[in-house]
């Protein structure tokens, strides 16, 4: 036990416990306890997700009457049926369209402003920063109607100029991209990161006659991959999960996203609880896949990005 612990704690240099503590009985008891708690946490985290996938296999009677965790049968056809009935292929595509544009805007616009506020610091930048910080305090739902009206009037004007119906073109979706570009929290993440970049490097480029914008695209961004990753992940999660404004903007159009659909199912007339749960499963699959692929970058990025925020 002691040897095993000593090896497990081998080169540990963070936190409290070190390899040389392995001989203390307290450490031995604690370490067993820690492992058990970790296992419990993993179960608590995964249980709801596993449950919902299983529940999606149940029929409505089974869901409401059966006390078993497992479904009576693992017949995929129920999922296939709900998928088709609720047109999830379209919603997936729409969700990805919203997400990709949103991530792009989140990185570019917040990055640009953070660059100006953190490095260029033109006169008056403090006032701008104060205003931006203040927006963190505004619950987004309070002004959603005013926001919606602003968006509609611009979209309809553009649609009129282009002589198209806004609901049939990407004009309906574009506002959801650009809104990602006005996020105080991500902006602060960028700003903190930029402020710690080596100053001389940037100054050298400026002296070389690079324009400010060129410095941003050719020097700052390449140096900022970790924070871009963090903001991209935050933005992707936000874009995928958001529903109230998308619901207001996209209902009645062909762009309805997965979460809009899920939100509408609350009160939908021809959908029962099993359909709702299957829709939940569909809505969590893409985030899970993306997370599995990038988990290393995500978890380490959050930690480094977050600590400075």
């Amino acid at each position: 036990m002691r040897k095993l612990l000593a090896r497990l704690y081998g080169d540990k240099s963070v936190g409290s416990i070190r390899a040389y503590d392995a001989k203390s009985p307290l450490t031995q008891i604690l370490s067993v306890f820690f492992v058990l708690i970790c296992a419990l946490i993993i179960v608590i985290v995964l249980l709801p997700v596993i449950w919902v996938v299983f529940a999606g296999f149940k029929d409505i009677r089974e869901l409401n009457r059966s006390t078993s965790f497992f479904p009576a049968s693992f017949d995929l056809s129920s999922y296939v049926k709900t998928w088709g009935q609720l047109h999830f292929t379209e919603h997936y595509i729409n969700s990805f369209i919203v997400l990709i544009g949103g991530v792009f805007c989140a990185v570019i616009f917040n990055g640009l402003l953070a660059y100006a506020l953190g490095i260029l610091r033109p006169p008056g930048y403090k006032i701008v920063f104060g205003l931006v910080m203040w927006t963190m305090l505004i619950p987004p739902t309070t002004s959603v109607v005013a926001q919606y009206l602003n968006i509609r009037s611009v979209v309809e004007t553009l649609a009129g100029l282009m002589n198209v119906k806004s609901q049939e073109t990407l004009l309906a979706v574009a506002p959801l991209w650009f809104i990602m570009g006005a996020n105080a929290f991500w902006l602060v993440l960028f700003k903190q990161f930029f402020e710690e970049l080596p100053k001389d490097y940037i100054e050298a480029a400026t002296l070389d006659g690079c324009s400010d914008l060129r410095v941003f695209t050719h020097i700052i961004l390449p140096l900022s991959k970790p924070i871009m990753m963090v903001v991209a992940i935050f933005a992707a999660t936000a874009a995928w999960s958001d529903f109230l404004l998308p619901h207001l903007l996209l209902n009645n159009s062909r762009w309805s996203t997965v979460m809009v659909r899920l939100f509408e199912f609350r009160s939908a007339m021809r959908v029962n609880d099993t359909d709702r749960l299957r829709a939940v499963v569909f809505s969590i699959i893409p985030p899970i896949i993306i997370f599995s692929l990038f988990q290393k970058q995500i978890t380490s990025g959050i930690a480094t990005g977050g600590i400075k925020g």
Binding site: Y148, L149, S153, H247, N251, N252
Partner: peptide
């Protein structure tokens, strides 16, 4: 298709859509 719902009627009516 528009399922009458309290949270959408106002914005849509205000925007004339």
């Amino acid at each position: 298709h528009y399922f009458y719902a309290l949270d959408t009627i106002v914005p849509m009516a205000e925007a004339g859509t």
